[in-house]
Design a protein around this nucleic acid. Structure first.
Lengths: 233, 233
DNA sequence: GCCGAAGGTGAGCGGGCGCTTAGCGCAGCC
DNA sequence: GGCTGCGCTAAGCGCCCGCTCACCTTCGGC
């Protein structure tokens, strides 16, 4: 019916926890609209329209337009954190876990590009209180990645001079995927995840970069994809 | 007088080529406002106010608010391209030139964060024609970096499986600096430039990563900075 | 079969938006 | 020393924004 289910609803992100059905439809419509045009350029009429409702219906389920963004942002950050925690706490060497963390984090940013865009780039549109709450989640994300890198340095697998700076760079690399990735482009989320895991292992000086990176993406081919053209940078 | 000169005007970016003085003041005010709040959340009244003029004055020098963004975006992209071309065409090995390209490109994104934010993140706010023109400049930016990497692969200095993908990742890493970097943070633009040059050389498998990266940033200390805390990610 | 709550609508409010227009002050020229 | 034209302002137009309110439907419980 509406395009909401095709784009944002079709992504891996479930939004299952958002409970009255109408509230969920509105939220998915908002994710789509915010990702496409940005928070400030999106009107409440547009959101309601995408969800197949009248403009006033929005205010039955949400107090303001900003509350919608806040809810999206919190759920998205919690999902991102969960992905990294899963990779970080599994069994295996720091090399394997870092490769797993990067490849799954990248897959989430690429496959759920619509959601990830809103989550990563609309932080400044939140008010001070909501913003502060989200920044707390971001610090946990940072700590999760830094933990793996520190462990790799301790075990001697990694050779990193500036752990904080390298952590920042690794996350930066993953997050920016949401800016440039397109499902119409030549690469699948899995391919980008495998490539980026390999690049990150090189960044931290892990010995068996190629092998561990491809193992983290299971049975996918990590080598150069066949398609010749890039999406815009 | 206005805050425009302190923030955007104080950056490395000259804007000297924007000729009537009033037009330049308006443009600098717009860069500031767009970087702070985003294009759509910025009002023409705000821009004019920052430049110390009445709202109507804007329309003497620019046809629309979008023309301001277009001009900023084109000048910024041309500057970015010039930086990369300078590094790419100097003497030296691919390793040295890649380190130089990355460190100077990162310095521009960090030091000129206000401008870089607008240039890198407000592309979608342009109309189709302006957008297409800017995308042409972006392809040239991409080609410049890809050229250095290809040369390093040919000479045997680099070991890269997916040249297109790695080019994308290198640019991605540099560009995302504009999102998180803060002058109030623990790192100077020079330190981030040196760190990132080192990380990129590792990504392409260059042998003497550390040495060439620090050489590219002249006499700066490339090792871990003293400050303990990170800016938000 | 009636009742109240839950969830929805159509119309519209106050206000701020991008942009226009009529007119003012003043430097440069004869 | 009056005239012209340019840079700028004050005022405001038409529009659409986020959000509200009075009212309407639907439906489970009795």
């Amino acid at each position: 019916m509406s395009t909401a289910e095709e784009t944002a609803g079709g992504e891996a992100q479930a939004w299952g926890e958002v409970t009255p059905d109408a509230a969920r439809r509105l939220l998915i419509a908002a994710v789509e609209a915010f990702a496409e045009r940005g928070y400030h350029a999106t009107t409440t009429r547009d959101i309601a329209g995408r969800a197949g409702m009248s403009p006033a219906a929005l205010y039955i389920h949400y107090k303001t337009k900003e509350e919608l963004l806040h809810r999206i942002s919190r759920i998205g950050h919690e999902k991102a954190l969960e992905i990294l925690r899963t990779a970080s706490r599994r069994e295996g060497s720091p090399t394997e876990r870092l490769a797993d963390a990067v490849s799954s984090f990248v897959r989430w940013h690429a496959g759920g590009r619509t959601t990830a865009r809103v989550v990563q780039y609309e932080l400044d549109s939140l008010g001070p209180d909501a913003r502060a709450e989200i920044l707390g989640l971001r610090r946990q994300v940072d700590a999760e990645v830094r933990g793996i890198i520190e462990e790799g340095v301790r075990s001697g697998e990694f050779e990193v001079i500036d752990v904080h700076g390298t952590t920042l760079a690794v996350l930066s690399l993953c997050i920016d995927v949401a800016r440039w990735f397109s499902l119409d482009g030549p690469r699948t989320p899995e391919e980008v995840g495998a490539l980026y895991a390999d690049l990150v292992l090189r960044m931290v000086g892990a010995a068996d970069a190629g092998a561990a990176a491809s193992a983290a993406t299971a049975d996918r081919v990590p080598a150069a994809p066949a398609a010749p053209e890039d999406p815009q940078t």
